[in-house]
Design a protein around this nucleic acid. Structure first.
Lengths: 127, 127
DNA sequence: CGCTTTCTCAACCGATTGGTTGACAACAAC
DNA sequence: GTTGTTGTCAACCAATCGGTTGAGAAAGCG
């Protein structure tokens, strides 16, 4: 995915109003008027938010007379989770390997102790 | 998760420099100096980015003499994917049900080509 | 046709963002 | 001590953001 589209997507979801709109649209398509109703702001402000969401590829809009129904698109959501998950898994895999190394070192220590003093493990927590 | 912390997290990842930093840190801890090296910007600018990431809970910092090594924290990444995935699955489940309705209507149409018309229900869609 | 509904566009405004430079704090090393 | 390395803090600046109001486009309805 193009870098700036990912930026647009994260920027779009950085605003609580736009996250609320996405949450609402996940339940079904809605017009700008319907989407604006729960908010204490002008319809124009909501219209701007919808434009941001549309340019991020998170929603699409069709036409129905004067109405412009909004539809949630899931593809960009997929790419966002893909990005986040990639680096989360990178990091967790690295921690897993580090734990293995620490466990091996622990075994060494125990072997060096003639008598083995036993398990005191799981240095999982953060510093 | 607190609303504004989710906002901070999305805001943090909205910047390409900060996403690069997260990607780098997913491979292992690094100091601000090491993180700044690949970028055509001052160390101070990178320091600011790190502050944003830290306030979003995406990284933590320890101390090692003058150095302040940065460590990627995965918990907030988890919460981000959880949020995105929730509404993505909401929407996809809805589409799945809509498809089922359309398929049922299709069946009706075919049945109508001989005999009786069946009941057609499930007002799933919005207005 | 004129009138209403629905929505977007344009201009404006204060707050925030992402960068800069300069000063300096903390620590190591000489 | 003094010097050098590493990093943060503070002030500043242009650009962007999230809201406002006002004007008008697009469509249905009397």
């Amino acid at each position: 995915m193009a870098d700036d589209q990912l930026s647009r997507a994260f920027t779009a979801l950085a605003d609580p109003t736009r996250r609320d709109i996405v949450a609402r649209l996940s339940l079904g398509d809605a017009t700008p008027g319907q989407l604006a109703e729960p908010f204490a702001m002008s319809l124009q402000a909501v219209s701007k938010h919808l434009k941001v969401l549309e340019e991020a590829g998170l929603i699409s809009r069709t036409r129905d007379a004067q109405r412009r129904p909004c539809h949630l698109e899931t593809a960009v959501l997929d790419e966002m989770t893909a990005w986040v998950d990639r680096y989360r898994r990178n990091a967790e895999e690295r921690f897993r390997r580090l734990d293995a190394v620490l466990a091996a070192m622990d075994d060494d220590v125990q072997e060096n102790h003639e008598d083995q003093q036993h398990e005191q493990d799981e240095g999982v927590a953060s510093p």
